[in-house]
Simulated scan of single mutants.
Amino acid sequence: MKLGVFSVLFAQKSLEEALDYIAASGLGAVEIGTGGYPGKAHADPDVLLADEGKLKAFKQAVESRGLIISALSVHGNPLHPQKAIAKEFHDDLIKTIELAQRLEVPVVNTFSGCPGDHEDAKYPNWPVAPWPNDYQEILKWQWEEKLIPYWKETGDFAAARNVKIGLELHGGFSVHTPATMLRLREATSEAIGANLDPSHLWWQGIDPVAAIRYLGQAGAIHHFHAKDTSLEQSNVNKYGVTDMQSYTQMFDRAWQFRTVGFGHSMKEWADIISALRLVGYDYVVSIEHEDGLMSVEEGFTKAVGNLQSILIREPLGEMWWV
């Protein structure tokens, strides 16, 4: 395995400054935003696809520092019911897949998206209860009319370019659990898999180790994000896990994102890394920082230190004791 980072943390730095900082921190990989919510601070597909010289210089900037690009990330909602919004996210995704092909980057990360509740809806509708039965009807329409057709076509587009799609299991989007991930994969393409981030599982009550086993046995883990979550039970008792308070309301929120090791113990993180090895994942563990109690630099540095101590780097050798 290699340790990497999602470079959107360092969007205020130039590409070269960010890569220097990442390499100096002892990392071996970088995940780069190419549109959607992460933005294009370090890689604009329109620019790189139009100019072979700039494309080669971009690739050289990464490789000359001993780094690989683990994924291009273009998180968005290409199924947004407002067609202009959906088109912008979709166009960014398609161009990112094309850029990944040109750069020989194997994974593009994004969200599954979430449609509305009918063709002329204005906002996404995320059903989370089976009754009243209206929600079941909405869910059926979303999957059959929007989610499966879109990702069947997009998955085939990516597969034809030797690119895999890593969907982040994130609340508010149609794919947010191992079951919804596997349902979409089975209905569309093996190019569709997970960008697994434990932070989004913990607040839903999902054990990340169990999720890794479910998804890993199906070959459905394409990328991994390292981010933690802490839950405050007294606030969970008051607001529930679907707490709608702003992330800035850290004292009152039921849960909040933390840097690795500040929400769950390093034993739990070691179990996660071991589970990844157990199911054959031997790719990048990419740090993502969204900790409201730490600066980017401190949160990143602490995550690096904690993960360096538990990452399994070497190939599995022969069991000499068997």
Rank of each mutant, 00 (worst) to 15 (best):
I221S: 01
A210M: 11
D91V: 13
P178M: 07
D120N: 15
V108Q: 02
R102N: 11
I165G: 02
L196C: 00
E145C: 12
N125D: 12
M181C: 03
A194G: 06
L231V: 14
M181I: 05
G205L: 01
Q204S: 08
W151F: 02
D91H: 09
W141R: 01
W131G: 15
G155V: 04
D92A: 15
R213S: 09
D117L: 13
E144Q: 12
I192V: 15
C114W: 02
N125G: 10
Y214R: 13
E98S: 10
L182P: 00
A179V: 09
P130K: 02
E145R: 15
A159W: 02
E98M: 13
S189D: 05
C114G: 06
I206E: 04
E153R: 04
K95D: 08
F157C: 01
G166R: 00
L231T: 06
Q204A: 07
H170M: 08
L201A: 05
K146Q: 05
Q101P: 08
E98A: 10
G166L: 06
P124M: 14
L196R: 03
F157E: 00
E104W: 10
W151P: 06
K95P: 02
A158R: 00
N133A: 14
G219F: 00
P149T: 01
Q101I: 08
H200L: 13
K152L: 13
N195Y: 04
K164M: 13
P130Q: 07
R183V: 08
G113T: 10
S189Q: 09
A191N: 03
S199D: 05
F111Q: 09
K95R: 14
K140S: 12
D156H: 04
D120I: 15
Q101V: 08
D228T: 04
A191P: 05
H225T: 00
G193S: 05
C114E: 09
N162R: 11
E119H: 14
L184A: 12
P132I: 10
Y123P: 06
F173I: 06
S174R: 10
T229D: 00
K152F: 07
W131A: 15
D117C: 13
E144R: 08
Q233V: 03
T180V: 03
Y214L: 14
G116E: 08
K227P: 00
L169S: 01
E137G: 08
D134N: 14
S112E: 07
E144Y: 03
V107D: 03
H90P: 05
I85C: 05
P106H: 10
W151C: 04
R183F: 06
K152D: 04
K95E: 14
H225N: 02
V105N: 08
T229V: 02
R102H: 11
E168R: 02
Q101Y: 13
G172T: 13
